[in-house]
Amino acid sequence: MRWLGRFGTPAASSSPPSSLLVSVRTKMGLPARRKARGHLTGEHVSVHKGRSMEFDDLRHYVRGDDVKDVDWKASARTGSILLKRYVAVRKHHLVAVVDTGRSMAARAAGGEPKRDLAVMAAGVLGSIAVQHGDLVGLVGGDAGGIIRAPLRESNVHLELLLRRVHTRIDLGGAPSDLAAVLRAVHRSTNRQLILLVVTDDAPFSAELEELVRRLRVQHEILWLTIEDTVLTDLELASRDLVDVVGGTHLPAALREDGALLADYAANRRARADHRTARLGQLRVAQAAIGREADVVPAVLGLLDRTRRAN
């Protein structure tokens, strides 16, 4: 089996690997073409509780039950009549809400472009969903407009969706406008959705807070923050830093001042704390990641928290 492009190649080219989904699955530790759920099973089943045609558990026969449902083998083993219990089919609607602004093409804290982490996160969640027969859609966008992909249930669709995100996030793209994206989500549907919001370290404004509050009424929100590069990272001491939005150069000489480093660290922490506090108050499951290795645990962690919240 030949593995196609890997995620987060150093070239960070804007042309996506030949299959983003393969890349995602590779990173998830799953062979791309195997149907089995692999070692993620234990975690994702709990997420999809009460769902689909799946067998859920056994219970004792009570009068009135359909004889067709009796699990004869299990009954024979235990000596009492047990019924198979199925869970009613209910498809979840997962929508990846991706900030595709230019700043998402910048470097993440771990070194990869934030875009790759965003695609990876959407891919991981989408992939799990598709395998469970759930529908995956996309609402993304930036100041330049909104992109959408309808809710569908296929790997091909998921691949397409990831590609659109990957292509859209570009250094030449429009600046971020997450509020517009959230408004678009709010307008677009009256169905109950699971929203995976993927954005970066931009300040969590009061406007965003209000939009999240409104969306929260109807939808499940998973908020994934992709952390920006720590500008005072020693690894970058000799590198030229350029802001993707303003084009501002941050001379290395300005990133050495002790007092400034302290102020900066405090400011970053304050911003993160503010976001965490606001989202926490809105009962939004949230996680922050800086590197590719964090994506899968973070997404699974988000799902886990959602399950517990339900």
Binding site: A106, P113, D228, T229, L231, R239, L241, V242, V244, N267
Partner: peptide
Amino acid sequence: RRAVQVANTDALTGLSRY
């Protein structure tokens, strides 16, 4: 070529010390 593209630098550039 070697420049690192970063975003949300206002967390640094907005500081009065900076």
